[in-house]
Write a protein that binds this DNA or RNA. Structure first.
Lengths: 195, 195
DNA sequence: GGTTGCATGTAAATGGTTACATGATTGT
DNA sequence: ACAATCATGTAACCATTTACATGCAACC
């Protein structure tokens, strides 16, 4: 998905500023589904407005109404009819396969190269990270008012994150023991490996 | 993780050509953890070799040993001591948070904008996709010979994908019904919404 | 005879990240 | 007084994707 479609999607849920769109990818309902940075969002909105897919209402942010203050207006964007049509066209195109980039899993792959302390820190930080995500997701209210798709995606995320968290918690100690054995094989280990 | 570190990681498991490195991100044990394209891998390997972090043995691919055939040599890369050191240094740096980009979930978010047929197709294709992934992962043999980290990541992936698959299968029909209700509200629905 | 898989590589184009610049307000 | 949050925007830089070029062998 390009940033333009992502913006249309957010605006389809309700009016927002560029800043708020960014937030919805960080903490909002679209967090963990896609990413978008300011450097991508602002140019995308400008282009979208040029093409008539979104409209905006500018709100001055300077108190001094006098001269050209350098502070730019705050822009409340809303999706237009053609914007909705463009979004719908994007939704029916078959999705490209998910992209995942997990430094955590890549590092964990080489667990035997890490010291027990580092490995412990890595996993515990991750469990804590999942707890944070899950707490924030569960604190999310007014969900019942949202459309079915949003609720579904929310529950899907909860289910998957809960499973991931549980797997880490349940298998942490085993990994610690096995990684230590791989890193510094015992005499018995070396005999077994030699066979 | 930059592509260079990714290459070092793969080569740490054993010698490989650029082509094989690419494959290991597609079907191999590192699939779904990170991505890397030819256009990223080949330049990365060249640079890595210049810096002495990897070495390679060139194998001519042309039968005609005569003149400069245009066909480039096949290069078997292996990691060097300094390459291993560089990898280890990268592993202890604290990982940046995971990136996920899921067009599927983004589209699902707007389920009520899709026709029932499209929604059904979307979800069923996804379930089938999970089945394919799970089958390939379960067919993976000689896992017992791999270090603890690899086995752990493998099992983590299995657990999470299985949960994701199960959630979709268990909640598919409910979503279909609810999305249809959202898309074309009944009189009762409109009354409830008005309150 | 055509497609698929093996195998490397380059160049152009894309698209995004990062860093910077600016400035007000609110909380500590 | 300082940090954080709100708020927009630009530009340089970077990395990656995509397309292309080349070529052989195996299989159908």
């Amino acid at each position: 998905m390009d940033t333009r479609t992502l913006c249309l999607g957010v605006l389809n849920r309700g009016d927002a500023t560029g800043y708020e769109i960014k937030k919805s990818f960080e903490e909002g309902p679209l967090a963990h589904i896609h990413e978008a940075s300011f450097g991508a969002i602002y140019p995308a909105l400008t282009k979208l407005a040029e093409e008539g897919l979104v409209a905006y209402r500018a709100e001055p942010q300077s108190q001094r109404a006098d001269t050209r203050s350098k502070r730019p207006d705050k822009k409340h964007y809303s999706i237009t009819r053609s914007g909705e049509a463009a979004l719908e066209a994007a939704l029916v195109r078959q999705p490209r396969r998910d992209e995942v980039r997990s430094d955590f899993l890549f590092i964990l792959f080489f667990a035997h190269r890490l010291s027990p302390a580092e490995l412990t820190r890595l996993i515990d930080a991750r469990i804590a990270g999942y707890d944070e995500i899950l707490e924030r997701m569960q604190a999310c209210d007014r969900l019942a008012e949202r459309p079915a798709g949003e609720r579904f995606v929310h529950e899907f995320g909860l289910a998957v994150y809960q499973r991931a968290r549980a797997f880490l918690a349940d298998n942490r100690d085993r990994l610690l023991a096995e990684a230590a054995a791989d890193a510094a094989p015992t005499a018995a280990g070396r005999v077994a490996a030699a066979k």
